[in-house]
Simulated assay, not measured.
Amino acid sequence: MSAASIRLRTRTTAFGRQRGVAAIEFAFVFIFLFLVMYGLVTFGSIFYTQQAVSRAAEDGARAAMLLPQPPDQESVRQVVLDSLARSLVVPISFNTDTASRKNWLSSNVTVAPCSAVPGATTCVVTVTYLYKNNRILPSVSLLDTSWVPDQLQGSATAALKTS
């Protein structure tokens, strides 16, 4: 055997031992990158839902401020539901039209509008969204999802007109 054929055989054997290493490295890196991306997207969806709930509470407080005093509870609740119906927090299966979105929201969102106390100077509207039952993204079994909140709550205060 010549020296060239021994070098070629050694090189081929070394490449044969390295076969599949790139696939294993890719699998480890892919799992890590997937978990990081999933965590970021999940956090973003929770953040978006929290912002939508807070905006709905603000819209309800603004409506309570502009309505005749004392504000009508059902009118404030409808303004909150209208605000949430314009956001992306409703599941796709109930997202066919505005009426179905509002119907779903009325059964999954709690709205505590301001109490109708005569002579009150402020009004607090609180909106509670049950996020645990209505997640935008499904949970992944590899992750501990104890950091995902069970519910999201937003509240807003408005100064009422004094007569």
Rank of each mutant, 00 (worst) to 15 (best):
P113Q: 04
T110M: 04
F26Q: 09
M1S: 08
I46H: 01
A159M: 11
T12E: 09
T12H: 03
V80C: 01
E74Y: 07
L152G: 05
Y48G: 01
N108V: 01
F15N: 02
W104C: 12
T128E: 04
D82V: 06
R17K: 06
S93I: 08
N108R: 05
I31A: 15
L8Y: 02
S139W: 03
F47N: 04
A52P: 06
A27V: 05
R101H: 06
Q50P: 02
V124D: 10
Y38V: 04
S75W: 08
T12G: 02
L66G: 13
R135S: 09
L143R: 01
Q18K: 10
T145V: 08
F32M: 15
L142C: 07
P91K: 09
V125N: 05
E74F: 00
A120S: 13
T110Q: 08
S163G: 08
T110V: 10
S163N: 09
F32Y: 04
F15I: 03
F28M: 15
A85S: 07
A4N: 08
L130E: 14
R77Y: 08
Q78I: 12
T42S: 15
M65Q: 14
R19L: 11
S93P: 07
K102T: 00
T122S: 12
V53F: 02
T42W: 10
E58Y: 10
V41N: 03
G60V: 11
A56Q: 13
I24C: 01
T96D: 13
F94M: 03
P113Y: 01
Q18C: 11
T121V: 14
F94Y: 10
I92W: 09
W104I: 03
V29R: 11
V148T: 07
V111D: 02
R62K: 04
V36R: 06
N133P: 03
A63E: 10
T42N: 15
N95K: 09
L40G: 15
R55D: 10
S75P: 01
A120C: 01
C114H: 12
S93A: 14
A112I: 05
S106T: 06
T162Y: 08
P113I: 03
M37N: 02
V53G: 02
V80E: 04
F34V: 00
N103D: 13
L35E: 05
M65D: 01
L40S: 15
P113S: 08
P138K: 13
A112Y: 07
S139F: 09
A52C: 04
S100I: 01
Q78L: 14
Q50W: 00
V80M: 06
A3K: 15
L67M: 06
Q151A: 06
N95Q: 12
A63G: 00
D144S: 10
R55P: 00
A52G: 05
T96H: 05
D144V: 00
S54F: 02
